[in-house]
Computed example of a mutant assay.
Amino acid sequence: MGVFTYETEIVTAIPPAKMFQSLVIEGDQLIPKIVPKAFKSVELIEGDGGPGSIKKITFGEGSQFNYIKHKVETLDKDNFTYCYSVIEGDALMNTLEKITYETKLLASPEGGSICKSTSKYYTIGDIEIKEEEIKAGKEKALGLFKAIEAYLLANPDA
């Protein structure tokens, strides 16, 4: 098994507490509402939403994938950190054992936040991950983040 790690940093005008609340705490309800073509539903299969919980994400008609299941690894509301692993679904493409995403939101000097994200791809055997696959995944994550940011800027009381 190989492990490939990628880091991303995104700056937003949204303060960390509000972004974390929307992206992580209320994300299961909010994300399918904001991007319904990409996300059909998020269903809690096991647990209460905290560490150890399993969620099934069903993608919309606009997605190349049908579904994934992810396991919440850590959730720290006070420090705005969240970690989950994709453990099942066609997004693993029969080449990945799992993908782990760690996200931390930090306050930026301008009053918004900096989102620092680390993605770890655990391959089956010695399979190599193509750079274009990683780039596509990063672009989708950035698109989702920017969609939530746009929603919050357009709906400041949300």
Rank of each mutant, 00 (worst) to 15 (best):
T5L: 09
E7P: 12
T8N: 14
E9F: 00
T12I: 06
T12N: 12
A13K: 12
I14D: 08
P16E: 01
A17G: 04
A17E: 10
F20I: 10
L23R: 11
G27A: 08
D28Y: 00
Q29F: 04
I31F: 00
P32T: 02
V35I: 10
V35L: 10
P36A: 09
K37H: 02
S41Q: 07
V42A: 11
E43I: 01
E46R: 14
P51F: 06
S53H: 04
I54A: 06
K56Q: 15
K56I: 13
F59C: 13
E61G: 12
S63K: 10
Q64T: 13
K69A: 00
K69C: 00
V72H: 03
E73A: 12
L75K: 04
K77C: 12
K77F: 04
D78M: 07
Y82N: 15
Y82H: 15
Y84F: 05
I87N: 00
E88L: 01
A91C: 10
L92D: 01
M93K: 06
N94K: 13
K104M: 08
L105G: 15
L105N: 14
L106E: 15
L106D: 14
A107F: 02
S108P: 12
P109M: 04
E110T: 13
G112R: 09
C115N: 15
K116Q: 11
T118D: 10
T118V: 15
Y122C: 11
I124Q: 13
D126C: 10
E131K: 09
I134S: 11
K135L: 15
G137Q: 05
K138R: 15
G143C: 14
L144H: 01
L144N: 03
A147G: 03
A150H: 03
A150P: 00
A150Q: 07
